[in-house]
């Protein structure tokens, strides 16, 4: 998978690049609008991450350019501006998602994967991890071809964990992914633990190995080892 990151803040760009490299994605970086347009017109990307405020231009123009020339490329806007107008303009222009800074890299990763999945062909839309197989369109989860019935939150949690497999996920990032702005309604993260426990139990009941590892004081890690 090949990504283009259009972001003028070097430190943030490096973090994002490092994160996606571990995912075995190629993540190229353009620090300004001019470089971004050059790269867009030369290479093909699966997904482009665009910051709206660039030193020499408006990220929304880059989105327009992309949509005109390469409509099949996924676009995610990452912006410090949380203005509703920008969000609506961005989504109307055909961007697939809008993420407000600051965000969790794991969240960005999950969204990139979702965009790429939506944009790829039917066959590759399936999510696979170990014994788990998920059909995102049907919201269907199979372990060894047996269906598991999950609640909406458990399903979201599982998809999020798999998208960020082999990584340490903080409790905050999980809470925010599942409850968004309401995450701060939970005065402690015991609540996440309840969901994690239920999910783990449902998976293991169907013969799944225990993929979920708890990392003391931090959060969880979903991996095959």
């Amino acid at each position: 998978m090949k990504l283009l990151l259009i972001e003028d803040e070097k430190a943030l760009a490096t973090s994002i690049q490092n994160y996606f490299q571990r995912e075995n994605f190629i993540c190229e970086w353009a620090a300004d609008y001019r470089t971004a347009v050059e790269k867009i017109n030369i290479y093909r990307y699966d997904c482009v991450l665009v910051d709206l405020m660039l030193p020499d231009g408006d990220g929304l123009d880059a989105v327009r350019e992309l949509k005109r020339n390469f409509p099949e490329t996924g676009i995610i806007i990452i912006s410090a501006k949380n203005s509703l107008d920008d969000r609506i303009t961005g989504l109307n222009l055909g961007s697939d998602d809008y993420l407000t800074k600051p965000f969790h890299l794991s969240e960005l990763n999950a969204r990139v994967q979702a965009v790429i999945r939506r944009r790829s062909f039917q066959g590759s839309q399936q999510i696979r991890f170990g014994k788990i197989q998920i059909d995102p369109q049907e919201h269907l989860v199979l372990v060894d071809q047996q269906e598991i019935v999950l609640t909406r939150k458990e399903y979201d949690l599982l998809v999020y964990l798999i998208a960020n497999k082999n990584r340490v996920l903080t409790k905050e990032s999980i809470a925010e992914h599942l409850w968004g702005d309401d995450a701060d309604l939970m005065d402690n993260f015991d609540f996440i633990y309840t969901h994690i426990k239920n999910l783990r139990k449902k998976l293991m009941d169907k013969g799944c190995p225990d993929y979920l590892k708890s990392i003391y004081g931090v959060g969880y890690k979903f991996s095959e080892q």
């Binding site: 943030l12 973090s15 410090a80 800074k101 965000f103 990584r167 340490v168 990032s173 990392i215 931090v218």
Partner: peptide, 27 residues
């Protein structure tokens, strides 16, 4: 303030993935 915060959070998240960190450091 949003941009430096985004940098801080992304760096922390990167650090979490470092397996050489001790438990106390992770906490």
């Amino acid at each position: 303030i949003q941009t430096p915060l985004a940098v801080i959070l992304s760096k922390i998240e990167g650090l979490f993935q470092d397996e050489s960190l001790k438990e106390s450091q992770l906490v």
